[in-house]
Simulated assay, not measured.
Amino acid sequence: MGLFKRNPFGHILFVKKWLIRILGLLSHRRFRGFNNLKIEGSEIIKDLPDTNVLFISNHQTYFADVFSMFHVFNASLSNREDSIKNVGYLWNPKLNMYYVAAKETMKSGILPKIFAYTGSISIERTWRSEGKDVNRQVKMSDISAISKALEDGWVITFPQGTTTPFKPIRKGTAHIIKRYKPVVVPIVIDGFRRSFDKKGLFIKKKNVYQSFEIKKPLEIDYDNESIDSIVEKIEYAIEQHPSFLKVIPQEELLAQEELNKQREWLDS
């Protein structure tokens, strides 16, 4: 790699690599130390093409969700099976990996601006700005940036556009899927909201059961399937469909609590 080689967004890859290494080292214990991230489905990562892959996920914190994905994806590509043990996988991280984030979030301080260099596709939200509801047109430059990132590599997006659970899926994600026909890989995370603050920068509670499930790519008829049908598939895939909002019986809650205790005992 040339020392000053850049990606399509003008970022110097040598700088991006070192930022991922440093931020990865600083964040590693948040997922393997203070907490122990349980990973499922990492074998799927190794079989994906190098470009035009779109990861869709539920959203629990601003930054920790993405950090965890950088760890899991790079560890999986380094032949670690459902594990981020031994942080050496960060030495040669995948550099053509991007994530969609709100522009106002990535400009909210020096740390977010540094994080942005690791692969942020910063877009203007059409429905909310500075804590207030808005209604504005999608900027074509934002769509173009996502297209450029898919052509170059992998893109992570949170189709609800918010960390609040069970909010509607934004149809823009479905439009991008129909237009660019990426491989769509669902991810479901849990435990991040309990273990980190809303931004995902500070540890709120230790020894929280965190889970990270990578599911098989969605089967989508890009040409004939409707936007609403794709939206519904996304809702089910990332477990944010209203049907998941069921009242859980007390016995089921107790059984789940007992299972979590057994997992903690097995990991100790």
Results as ranks from 00 to 15, higher is better:
100 V>D: 08
109 G>V: 01
46 K>Y: 12
52 N>V: 05
58 N>V: 10
116 A>D: 03
52 N>E: 06
89 Y>E: 02
18 W>A: 08
90 L>R: 01
44 I>H: 05
134 V>P: 08
11 H>R: 15
36 N>F: 14
98 Y>D: 03
70 F>M: 13
41 G>D: 05
64 A>P: 02
36 N>K: 13
8 P>S: 08
132 K>N: 13
86 N>G: 12
68 S>N: 03
59 H>G: 07
91 W>Y: 13
86 N>H: 14
13 L>C: 07
28 H>I: 07
64 A>K: 00
5 K>L: 09
6 R>I: 12
75 A>P: 10
38 K>C: 13
130 E>G: 14
97 M>Y: 10
51 T>F: 08
51 T>V: 11
83 S>W: 00
122 S>C: 10
90 L>D: 05
14 F>A: 15
37 L>W: 05
59 H>P: 05
83 S>G: 09
109 G>I: 06
86 N>S: 13
59 H>M: 04
49 P>E: 05
108 S>R: 11
112 P>N: 06
49 P>C: 03
35 N>G: 01
139 K>H: 11
66 V>P: 03
76 S>G: 08
89 Y>Q: 00
101 A>K: 07
41 G>Y: 00
98 Y>S: 01
22 I>T: 14
17 K>Q: 12
13 L>N: 10
60 Q>M: 11
96 N>G: 06
87 V>N: 11
111 L>V: 14
5 K>G: 12
58 N>F: 08
122 S>E: 12
84 I>T: 06
38 K>Q: 15
77 L>H: 05
43 E>K: 12
137 Q>I: 14
123 I>D: 10
41 G>C: 02
72 V>P: 03
71 H>R: 03
67 F>M: 14
7 N>R: 00
133 D>H: 12
